[in-house]
Design a protein around this nucleic acid. Structure first.
Length: 659
DNA sequence: CCAGGGCTCATTTTT
DNA sequence: TGAGCCCTGG
């Protein structure tokens, strides 16, 4: 058996695991709010103070996190201890420590395994995050290289950077559970190219762009560590302690890579996580890696069953979902006893959008399965919502491949820049802040005419005041169609305009897109204000559950609407909300053999992650047809009552609300 | 019976 | 944009 529950030691977030004394590998099971990061940080500090191994020059504790944000958080909390710790994502670690220091071996392996020769001067670098592949490389340079290597001139001319960028080593075949490295990794190949052409295209990426994709860093990192004893030896010497946070999120090749050097008598390998919070299956992560974690010298297993975040009622409701977890079937309320409101289960059968039935204050977060459901909670008029959604979808799927948040952030199009400018200006005006007004106008009108003293300064200042007054003509119900005119007229009359007028493309214009620009004209000021300040902002409190992972909020509303193709009422759907709530299975025995069961259990875990973000108030929102409601309520209630009976809970920790 | 035009609806996310 | 669905004309 993978988990020996009887011999799993109960600890709490303040426990000293005495790693410096026993020098044993370990695994920690800890649910939401258990104080995982606290346990990790405190034990690292104790280890630094007491470990003799770390006294040797240059030796550090390796601490692997899933995201850059998590790494930053740990670095911050380590404070002065950070100098003894190498905190990093697995990608940065493999690039900075393994690939960069073994360029000759990397070149040799690429040549050996794929027959692609790379010149000595090449230094392969990781692809830049947030940018498309080959973003820093000119297309002409790539084309030039391809032609020089004998590729057909006309074929090269029609070759986009996107197409070239697709030629990467596909690790999917390797990155499966259980990990099996006898599978051969190949370069992604569009059938229009011959084997030789693919080799040339790949060479152009390596020689000209000198770029490695994210998965390629994993693949070559794994390969080098596996092929070279000296690399394994040096990693073990440099990092006598290897700790991995959020272990349930790391995928098979990452774990296999760590195992190559961390599963060793000279290394203490510690992993920490929660089986039930594994929600990155679509990234090849599986909780099975954590469940079946085993070091050669048999690690010590620990668990924390306390929850320092949520109230007792919330913990009981959440524990109902993880009742089948073998390690922590129920958490214990360890701290939050200030209030203890019942969890609300809202059964919504009305036709109105959910935003109209909730009072949402700034302590409330709305967390949903899909971005579409998140959107239904926004306080935007239904017709306006429809227009905005059409615009967002066109950006995302209509050949732009652009996320709305990014589009706004980058000021991707004129109309988005206009929206940003207007909202900033009006907000600044409401606050009566001249500094903010001037800051909003920067880049649009010539600010220096007002800020620098001159004979005309007064004249321009007066013009600015007129502009601000004219902006008052724009009220919540003004549409973008009118805003375009009002703004342009006002800006021109300042005599300070330093750019072209804001123009929303019309039919016949080069960049006109019916689905985008016709709908843009319909948007009102109220909508664009909400769009910029509430919906598509980085500190938005309405988001998908995936984005909320690791966060916590005073009040939480969780929506559980599946994607349309998951919904059982749709063709080929497989997610039945009632069936899942009635008997939640967070860990399916058939996780790797039955994709449907695996999808259902991952969906259940996602809902669990959402629910467990709540500190004081939790609402589960379920949208139902009127004819489903009674059965739904009765059957879910019975299941919860049965759970109470089995667990000797007398006072209900939940209540139903019908709307 | 089937080819193809028109229409609708788009997973979640890290590096 | 592009897959999948419905509908219609040949």
């Amino acid at each position: 058996m993978a988990i020996d529950i009887v011999n799993t030691l109960l600890v709490d977030s303040a426990s000293d695991l005495k790693i410096y004394e026993n020098e044993r590998s370990f695994r920690v099971f800890a649910g939401p709010g258990a104080g995982k990061t606290y346990l990790l940080i405190e034990n690292i500090k104790t280890l630094v103070k007491n470990s003799l191994k770390l006294k040797k020059n240059g030796r550090k504790i390796l601490c692997i996190t899933y995201t850059n944000a998590a790494a930053d958080e740990i670095i911050k909390r380590l404070g002065v201890y950070n100098q003894y710790v190498y905190v990093s994502t697995i990608h940065s670690f493999l690039y900075d420590v393994v690939l960069k220091n073994n360029r000759v071996q990397l070149r040799h392996q690429i040549q050996n395994k794929y027959g692609i020769e790379i010149s000595d001067s090449v230094s392969l670098k990781p692809r830049i995050e947030g940018m498309s592949p080959l973003a820093t490389c000119k297309k002409e340079k790539l084309h030039e290289y391809l032609v020089s290597k004998g590729m057909d001139q006309t074929k090269v001319e029609g070759l986009s950077k996107t197409k070239i960028g697709q030629c990467i080593w596909k690790i999917d075949i390797l990155n499966t559970y259980p990990f099996n490295d006898s599978n051969i990794v190949t370069i992604h190949q569009d059938p229009v190219f011959s084997d030789d052409e693919i080799k040339i295209i790949k060479s152009s990426i390596l020689e000209v762009a000198q770029e490695l994709d994210f998965d390629e860093i994993l693949f070559w990192g794994y390969t080098l560590i596996k092929e070279y004893k000296h690399i394994r030896y040096s990693l073990r010497y440099k990092f006598p302690y290897v700790f991995v946070d959020e272990y349930q999120d790391t995928n098979p090749i990452q774990n296999a890579t760590l195992r190559l050097f961390a599963d060793d008598k000279n290394v203490v390998w510690g992993v920490i996580g929660d089986l039930v919070q594994s929600i990155y299956g679509f990234n090849n992560a599986t909780y099975k890696e954590f469940e079946n974690f085993q070091t050669t010298d048999a690690q010590i297993d620990y668990k924390i069953d306390g929850n320092r975040r949520s109230t007792d009622n919330i913990i009981k409701f959440c524990s109902y979902f993880r009742q089948k977890d073998p390690v922590i079937p129920n958490q214990i309320c360890a701290k939050n006893t200030s209030v203890n409101n019942k969890v609300k289960i809202v059964l919504h059968t009305g036709l109105e959008e959910p935003n109209s039935i909730f009072v949402i204050d700034n302590e409330t977060a709305i967390l949903c399965r899909s971005a579409a459901e998140v959107f239904s909670f926004t306080n935007i008029d239904t017709e306006q919502k429809r227009a905005l959604k059409k615009i967002a979808n066109t950006y995302e799927f209509g050949g732009y491949g652009l996320d709305m948040l990014n589009a706004i952030d980058q000021g991707r199009e004129e109309w988005l820049r206009l929206c940003k400018f207007l909202v900033q200006l009006k907000v600044a005006k409401e606050k009566n802040s001249l500094a903010e007004i001037i800051s909003a106008c920067r880049g649009i009108i010539d600010i220096e005419k007002i800020t620098k003293s001159s004979k005309e300064q007064g004249y321009y200042y007066k013009n600015l005041i007129i502009l601000i007054k004219k902006i008052d003509e724009i009220i919540d119900s003004t549409t973008m169609e009118d805003i375009e005119n009002i703004i342009n007229e006002s800006l021109k009359s300042t005599n300070m305009l330093i750019r072209d007028c804001f123009l929303i493309p019309k039919e016949g214009d080069e960049y006109y897109n019916k689905d985008i620009h016709d709908n843009v004209r319909l948007l009102t000021y109220e909508t664009i204000k909400k769009m910029i300040l509430e919906v598509y902002s980085f500190d938005s409190k309405i988001m998908t559950i995936h984005k909320a992972k690791g966060l916590e909020f005073k009040k939480v509303i969780v929506g559980i609407e599946p994607f349309s193709k998951e919904d059982i009422s749709k063709k080929n759907g497989y997610i039945d909300k009632l069936a899942i709530l009635k008997s939640p299975i967070v860990l399916s025995q058939e996780e790797d053999t039955n994709p449907q069961k695996s999808n259902i259990s991952e969906y259940t875990r996602i809902i669990y992650v959402g629910l467990s973000r709540a500190i004081n108030d939790l609402t589960l929102y379920v949208r139902l047809n009127l004819n489903q409601k009674d059965a739904f309520r009765t059957e879910f209630d019975n299941a919860l009552k049965e759970y109470m009976r089995v667990n000797y809970i007398n006072e209900p920790f939940y209540e139903f609300v019908e709307i």
